[in-house]
Amino acid sequence: MHLTGQLTKMITEYNSPIQYYLNFNDEIIIINQLLDKKIKIRFDHYKCLGCGLDKVIFAMGYCKECYFTSPYAGDWILRPELSKAHLGKEDRDLSVESQAQLQPHIVYLAISGGVKVGVTRKSQLPYRWIDQGAEYAIKLAETENRYEAGVIESILKKHVSDKTNYRKMLRESVPYIDLSIVKNELKTFIPDQLENYILEDNEIFNFQYPVISYPHKVNSVNLKKVFEFEGILKGVKGQYLLLDNNMVFNVRNHEGFVVDLIL
């Protein structure tokens, strides 16, 4: 089978194991069914998620011009403490920013190659955890908007990482750590004026990924450097495809790339 389409973030379904789907030009491909089968991906051209033009993708699926102008690629996305919609101040488009920022957000702890702290819209759970390849996660706080969550995260990332160590996450199944204990330790750093956002709920979520075997070492594929690659699909974790030749491919990092998928 030979299909051509634009890469976008894989759709996920919270199940055991996680179910993955690729929306490939309105044709849904069930990625789990491709396990232990040979796949080939070949770069064809770019298609910016913003302007739709064949321009080199700069970041987040956007060409350089769109990345620095689109309201869907503002600095507040990666740094929620920079959110300003709660003040009625515009970054790039207040209507877009208000819709995204002025809703309940969750500050969480997750284990994905190590313990990390993160922020996401409440409506994005548990999918945000899955996209990061988390094996365990716990809610730490729930805020009324993105800014408040960002402030809490900024405080806690002085004590725990806010980054995912993707190499550790892809090399092996990580050992269990009781996140409720970590949560109790970290919440002592949250100042009094924010402590009312702390959640008493200590449910720990666990995620099982469709992985037959992990790579012995991690060789990340970049389609700007290697225009095609192939191998037997051995697993899917986070937004990565894991192949038998130690190659790993981050689908989300290649949003906006139009590729040939040969099955």
Rank of each mutant, 00 (worst) to 15 (best):
L7I: 12
P126T: 05
L22W: 15
I31W: 03
D93E: 03
G150K: 03
N25F: 13
K158G: 04
Q239M: 14
V226H: 03
I155W: 02
G114H: 00
I232C: 09
W76L: 12
Q193F: 15
I18D: 00
S95L: 06
L102E: 08
I190M: 00
C66M: 09
F189Y: 15
I232Y: 09
D75L: 15
D93G: 02
S16A: 07
E228M: 05
I57G: 00
K225A: 04
G114F: 00
A141P: 06
D54Q: 07
Y21I: 11
I41D: 03
Y127N: 06
R121D: 04
K9C: 12
A85Q: 03
A73H: 08
V107K: 01
E228K: 09
D260G: 11
I262S: 12
Q33L: 13
C51A: 09
N245K: 11
I204T: 07
Y214D: 01
V218H: 01
L7Q: 03
F227L: 05
K224Y: 07
V221Y: 03
I11C: 05
E230P: 06
I155R: 00
P126N: 05
E97P: 07
I152M: 01
G5D: 05
Y46D: 01
L87W: 06
L199N: 00
L3C: 08
D162C: 01
G235P: 12
E27S: 11
L94V: 04
K47L: 09
